[in-house]
Write a protein that binds this DNA or RNA. Structure first.
Lengths: 88, 88
DNA sequence: TTGACATGTCGGAATGTTTAGATGTATGAC
DNA sequence: GTCATACATCTAAACATTCCGACATGTCAA
């Protein structure tokens, strides 16, 4: 259901994560720092996004890198962030 | 905040309401019937959407008609519904 | 004014989400 | 092997959302 995926995206940390990952892949620790949250919370957000097929991940040594798996996210983020919807 | 507005949209009934209102304005009762929910719940959903500036309303006799106030909703719905994101 | 209709608002129960801390697992360095 | 690092998982508390019934408001018609 579309509503479920929108809810998944609709969280400040997850929007920030998606925004970053649209540029390039990142590790959990990097994303956690960028969002100002502990890494276990970042991990939880990433799990939610990955469970819905929005992200993919790969391990490289001790780190795990995530990237955007769903191209539509770029369009959604373009709508959301660029000029639309509840700009402050 | 963008996340807040996305959360507002991210509900099955509210997505349906937006989808209908993108075509033409409708009364609360019509929307409630279309969503299969009681009219007081439709009224509540409409209030949430209106409070964030996504809808507008006008009274006509006893009925109150709502329509889409935020043009970006058409683009968002186009992304969401047409081919992207968690299609079943 | 009264009654019926359309909508809005107010509780509160049920449910879902977010967060934090503690613990668990996998990897590389030594 | 031990240790530290990077990440994941579990649990429970705190918080927010959803839904429903009951009641309130506002309008029209008679």
């Amino acid at each position: 259901m579309a509503a479920e995926c929108l809810r998944t995206i609709a969280h400040p940390c997850r929007l920030r994560i998606i925004e970053i990952l649209l540029k390039e892949e990142r590790s959990v620790g990097e994303l956690a720092e960028a969002c100002g949250i502990p890494s276990n919370m970042a991990s939880e957000h990433l799990r939610l996004l990955k469970d819905r097929g929005l992200l993919n991940s790969r391990r490289d040594g001790r780190k795990i890198y995530y990237w955007v798996a769903e191209p539509a996210l770029a369009m959604i983020m373009n709508c959301v962030g660029k000029k639309f919807i509840c700009k402050d």
